[in-house]
Write a protein that binds this DNA or RNA. Sequence first.
RNA 1: GCGCUGUUAGCUCAAUCGGAUAGAGCAUCUGACUUCGGAUCAGAAGGUUAGAGGUUCGAGUCCUCUACGGCGCACCA
Length: 565
Amino acid sequence: MSLRNELEQRVSAWAEKNFPGLVNEPWVRACADERHGHFQTHLAMVAAKATRQNPRELAERLARECPPPEGWEKPSVAGAGFVNYRVGPEALGRAVDTLRKDSRLGVPSVSRPESIVVDFSSPNIAKAMHVGHIRSTLLGDSLARLLHKLGHRVTRVNHLGDWGTQFGKLLLAYRAAGRPPIEADQAIDQLEDFYKKGHQATEADPAAMEQARAELAALQNGDPERLQDWRLFCARSAEHFRRIYERLGISFDAVRGESAYHEDLPGVVRELLDRKIAEVSQGAVVVRNTSISEEPYLVQKSDGAYLYATTDLAAIRYRTGEMKADRIIYVTDARQQLHFRWLFDTARRLGCRAELEHVWFGTILGPDRKPLKSRDGTPLKLTDLLHEASERAAEILRNKRPDLAPTALREKAELLGIASLKYADQLPNRNLDYVFTWEKLLAFDGNTAPYILNAYVRTRSILRKAGLSQPPEAAVKISQAEEEVLARHLLRFGDAVELATNDRRPHHLCGYLYELAGQYHRFFEACPVLQLPALRDSRLTLVFLTGEVLREGLSLLGIPTLEEM
RNA sequence: GCGCUGUUAGCUCAAUCGGAUAGAGCAUCUGACUUCGGAUCAGAAGGUUAGAGGUUCGAGUCCUCUACGGCGCACCA
């Protein structure tokens, strides 16, 4: 249990006993300014307001009647009615000893695990993955890791765009070209090219548009030749996705695209109509709810075709049924907020009991503050992004580590480049648009993956020199300010993981890890580890634990560590 | 027009869902390498939190209004 939690239990018990009516919230938090103390509670001020008592007097009473755990200093009252607490060095040492023996590093397990589907990434068949997919892919992956860590049963789902109207145009141009073979190594370029041609043709000529619709209809009605083409497109695209996910270290439990629900769609619409949830309007089938918007929600077009609303409804049914999901988390960009409000509302009216969540994120902007594009105006391809990341890292490594052999350098550059990219993307609050620059994304100073990895590498280096793979058994003795700050921060790891998970915002974890790395660097400057026999074992334990927490924390962000860099 | 969302240091971002004197990095300036990895550390400077009201012990955070920006609003996903 964290230090904060230990104190929290006492304070909330006191609150429960004396002010049973107060809503239960975390009463104890770390002081923003450590000159006041290590932890503080504002309980007295809240209780005073509720019962019209004097906050200072209540704070005095709280400090008197509710002592902190053994080994803490006597609490003090300050300000308008804060009660401040300090952990003594012995109690802190004991807490670190406990943390060392905890394989979860202080991360709690939820009392009631849920089955959670995390729906993320979702690229489109026959198109290259581009910057537009990066935030969903990384954020979804991190959320899945975090939820799993807290003890939930997580199913990672890739809901591929494999059945949309784009296939009409693609088939049109592909078949006009005589259905040439699609080469594995440049499949995506070829397919995008066909799509572009098909798109241009339909833009220019209404008759071509009709043909494209006919192609799509033929495919969706199961024409064998078109199905065969479509399967080829899917297989080639899957190979492209696989390469990118492999470089990113991301995996899925279920790759189940829109096509998987194709046959369920008529049933979904029929049920909506039968149960009077939907109605026919101007030949289309729509759901109405003016508390969401004046415009209705379209579930079937007037020409009989279905929409992604319909597919998503079918997918919810599958996930809550076959997959037994208690909760579905969708990770998409902000523009789909209205869609998901409609989707969730409609699903609930259909009787869906599972919790439905839309975790949305902002746009990646270029230096001109407009959505990021490559030089030719098309979306920046992920393949190019990863290549550039790796190249820039290699360039830096060539300067810093001229001793490395080319293959080792390549390997480290790949890890560092992709780690930097992943970290930089997850650092800003997901709700904000953020400005992308190569300099920032691949920066190696400041709040970056290399800075944190460097702290980790230093822990490994010391442990190697000490000849240790496990921490020593001796008790931890806190003798210096830098040790104390480091130790207390190590004990907050569980709080940081919980916050990042419950808030669905991994950037909180970035902040925690950056601070930890900084504190370790300061400890490193101020506290010799190997030279002082009396403190050696104790400090080695702090070094070891710092490494463990850094590695675990980075891993929850999908970032692997390395032993030296 | 309606809705969602944003505006914090020159720039890029934080601030533990209302807590104490708003913090980092980059850029600028000044220091620290015969010591466990200098991809580091110490320090300086930088702010009317877009503006105006309100709520209360206490507001960057909540409510109202205003200004400016992004996005979304029936047959794309």
